[in-house]
Write a protein that binds this DNA or RNA. Structure first.
Length: 111
DNA sequence: GGTGTGACCAGCT
DNA sequence: AAGCTGGCCACAC
């Protein structure tokens, strides 16, 4: 099978499909890929996102609470928040404001 | 080839 | 009510 298409690659694809000004959760992506509750793999994929040739908007991926858990991994804490605010997403206390409204699901792009 | 880990989630105590 | 543990799967050494 096409094992060449690493699970990470699929994660990058989904993250890139996230519309501008929207955010998604690790669990949603993991479930969409069929990994079920393997949300941890998604976070891991993000860790290797820098390995991807194309830029991956990992700042649009947050945990189920809308909290910017991986902001520390962007090279500089606060960079993730800055990127989100740059897209019109308000972030407060490391949390996405109105995350419920901005949450975009790969399996349910239209609410 | 087995062990460890990881930016999580959900359930149990 | 809040805190903790387990579970999930894929990649690296």
């Amino acid at each position: 099978m096409s094992d060449k298409e690493s699970f990470f690659r699929k994660v990058y694809e989904v993250v890139r499909q996230v519309p501008y000004g929207r955010v998604t959760s690790y669990g949603a992506i993991a479930r969409y890929l069929g990994s079920g509750g393997a949300a941890r793999m998604v976070g891991w994929a993000m860790n290797a996102s820098h390995s991807s040739d194309e830029p991956v908007p990992a700042h649009r991926v947050v945990n189920r609470n809308g909290m910017l858990t991986g902001k520390h991994h962007f090279g500089s804490p606060g960079l993730m928040q800055q990127l989100l605010e740059s897209e019109g997403v308000k972030v407060e206390d490391d949390q996405v404001v109105e995350f419920d409204k901005l949450h975009w699901d790969p399996a349910h792009p239209e609410p």
